[in-house]
């Protein structure tokens, strides 16, 4: 079977996101096994210059219009629908990111093809495409087969190598028109993160706290430890949602991506949304009461124990060492 694959290009403020290249890479891999072409769908405002960097695709389908800044699903979905029909595409690859969130479900409902979420692996087996999804906060993997090869796939960020989707070739560009409509969801503006707080992406030592820290008072213990190390405190989503620390301290999918020399993780289980934001730290030391917490799989050092008990002991040790 050889049918086309569409890749919805992601970009923010004039820069192509890594997920774009990751999707092009996996698209190329599937096309190599099954035949067919890979088309990059690029839409936005003032984005035509980005097309030249999408050489891993066989062609770029471009819609560059003033009213296409951060378009909503009701604009993107009909366009993808139209392109699927025109290009006889069997697969559409979307980023498993907040930016593309929800598009897959709507497109799948309209095209009556299945949607596969959280995709971390793809292989062709006996002529069928088998996709691996990550479920239940990273604790379970699920293999699903697309019987007739048709599907909409949400590609998990960081799961496939971006290098495989980069190329120096200049792809042919084909202009496409967005179907007319009067959107009921209209983009107004970006709200930038608060910059009055410290920038956690620039710290070399981060003391991170998660649900296991239990209370706001205990966040103060982590503050004292961070101070003794010359670092700052950051957190996973549940702590931010509780209002114990400001949004500017959030690490993970919606928050910041950090790469400190030292990441001390206290009471963080290591859900994929958090792991995405800190996996490149030089040294990760994790403390969690659950010996099976996924965070231990990627950490350099691990401690099964109570963070609240350990933090003050560690602070005392460090203060003593520093004299």
């Amino acid at each position: 079977m050889s049918a086309a694959i569409l890749v919805l290009v992601e970009h923010l403020k004039g820069t192509l996101a890594d997920i774009t290249f990751e999707m092009l890479g996996v698209g190329r891999q599937i096309a190599a096994a099954q035949g067919g072409q890979v088309h990059a769908v690029l839409l936005g405002k003032d984005v035509n210059a980005l097309a030249a960097r999408l050489g891993a695709a066989d062609s770029v389908l471009l819609a560059d219009e003033p009213n296409l800044e951060q378009p909503s699903a009701e604009v993107i979905v009909p366009l993808l629908q139209q392109l699927m029909a025109q290009k006889q595409a069997s697969l559409v690859l979307l980023g498993g990111t907040n930016a593309s969130f929800g598009l897959g479900g709507q497109l799948s409902a309209r095209m009556k093809v299945p949607f596969v979420n959280f995709c971390k692996g793809a292989r062709v087996e006996g002529g069928s495409l088998v996709l691996t999804s990550q479920l239940f906060g990273g604790k379970i993997l699920s293999d699903v087969k697309l019987a007739d090869g048709k599907g909409i796939v949400s590609v998990y960020p960081g799961a496939f190598p971006a290098e495989a989707g980069r190329s120096d070739k200049t792809p042919p560009v084909e202009k496409v028109a967005v179907p007319p409509g009067s959107p009921k969801v209209v983009f107004k503006r970006f709200v930038e993160p608060d910059t009055s707080d410290v920038d956690i992406t620039k710290q070399s030592v981060l003391v991170a706290v998660g649900r296991g820290i239990q209370s706001q008072d205990n966040v103060q213990l982590a503050e004292e430890l961070a101070q003794s190390l010359g670092g700052v405190v950051c957190a996973s989503r549940p702590v931010i949602d509780q209002g114990w620390l400001p949004l500017s301290r959030q690490v993970g999918k919606s928050g910041m991506t950090v790469k400190p020399r030292l990441y001390l993780a206290f009471g963080i289980s290591g859900a994929p949304e958090h792991w995405d934001g800190m996996q490149s730290s030089e040294c990760i030391i994790s403390v969690n009461t659950d010996p099976k917490a996924p965070i231990f799989d990627g950490s350099h050092y691990g401690v099964v124990g109570d963070a609240v008990e350990l933090i003050p002991l560690l602070t005392d040790r460090i203060k003593a060492k520093k004299g």
Binding site: L141, S142, V144, S286, D297, S299, H300, L314, R317
Partner: peptide, 29 residues
């Protein structure tokens, strides 16, 4: 969607686990 198989992920790696009393562990870290 038809699920072919569900399974637990194999860990890519595993942290070196530090053991002992909390005091020992604080000293190790």
């Amino acid at each position: 969607l038809v699920v072919e198989r569900m399974y637990k992920p194999e860990a890519a790696g595993r942290a070196q686990m530090l053991e002992g009393t909390p005091e020992d562990i604080a000293a190790r870290i």
